[in-house]
């Protein structure tokens, strides 16, 4: 028992010392000041490095800092849908100037927060607005165009004339647009070259939102079954779900050498420019096509 008290005392002392040392730690910049420009980003349920909307948006925010526009940039990953409002409020209360919310799931929470924090500008990535919400700029993308280009490219590159797409749920319009665009693009290429390409598009609509974009095992399985049926190009559209078979499947390279060819990184295909491999390595080119956006209403 004596030893126990000793250990406990030691722990308490250690934690007190650490607290004393750590007291000075908080971020130096104060976002509530007029001259400090702060940008915060709230993800949907998912990770910041999802090779999809979250990551692209965050890279954009980081670029704003690199370009000297923003002084402070921060993100919060949402782990449960009921925290949307709280996570946005975290930035709102800290006096951030711009808050980026990623994903249509945050649409309602963003609109509500815009009313609570009228001086903050919100950017809602992939948030469709039936009616204009003051303070919120919704970003929508011509996903069908992107899908179209990928589909055309895949059909042109395919030697087996079988191509596939592994997507998140088609309940989400952008994902559906990717998929349909992909089919249309393949058909277009067929028309040009006189080929007949078989297109497999599979949506992961059989699970809930918690899972549909975060299920790389399913993605890998589905992609594999497509390859087994002869597909030599597979397009991934759907967060982490579409990520696994590109990034982690060891068998992939083997298939590649045997004549399968990759389609450029699907996650990047959110932005049509990124389709070309060279450009994918230059984030600067990942700028939204201004012709299609409502960029900062106010």
């Amino acid at each position: 028992m004596k030893k126990l008290y000793f250990v406990m005392a030691l722990l308490i002392v250690a934690s007190m010392v650490l607290t004393a040392c750590g007291a000075s730690a908080p971020t130096a910049e104060d976002c509530s000041k007029e001259e400090v420009f702060c940008v915060g980003l709230v993800t949907d349920v998912g990770k910041i490095n999802d090779k999809s909307f979250n990551q692209s948006a965050w890279e954009g925010v980081q670029k704003s800092q690199a370009d000297g526009v923003a002084d402070v940039v921060q993100f919060i990953e949402t782990s449960d849908a009921k925290d949307y409002a709280k996570n946005i409020a975290q930035f709102g209360d800290a006096g951030y100037d711009v808050i980026v919310t990623v994903g249509f799931g945050l649409g309602e929470a963003t609109a509500a927060a815009a009313a609570t924090y009228p001086s903050v500008r919100f950017i809602g990535v992939d948030q469709f607005q039936a009616e204009t919400v003051a303070g919120v700029s919704g970003l929508n993308f011509p996903e069908d165009n992107a899908g179209f280009l990928v589909g055309a490219l895949a059909a042109m590159m395919s030697e087996s004339h079988k191509i596939g797409a592994v997507c998140g749920t088609d309940v989400v319009p952008p994902v559906w647009r990717f998929g349909e665009g992909y089919k249309a693009g393949a058909a277009y290429a067929d028309g040009m070259n006189g080929t007949t390409t078989e297109v497999f598009v599979v949506y992961h609509s059989d699970v809930g939102f918690d899972k549909t974009f975060t299920d790389p095992e399913w993605g890998a399985q589905t992609a594999k079954s497509m390859m087994d049926q002869g597909a030599d190009a597979v397009f991934g559209c759907g967060g982490l779900t579409a990520r696994r078979h590109y990034r982690r499947r060891p068998g992939w390279r083997l298939r590649h050498r045997r004549g399968h060819r990759p389609v450029p990184d699907p996650a990047r295909s959110c932005f049509p420019h990124a389709l070309l491999r060279d450009e994918a390595h230059h984030p600067r080119s990942c700028r939204p096509d201004q012709g299609h956006q409502r960029w900062f209403h106010r």
Binding site: P26, T27, I76, E77, D80, D83, K86, N87, Q90, F91
Partner: peptide
Amino acid sequence: MRNGATRMQFLTQMPV
């Protein structure tokens, strides 16, 4: 812990 995680992440950018 779940609730405080947001604030923790905000202050430290540690993943949840």
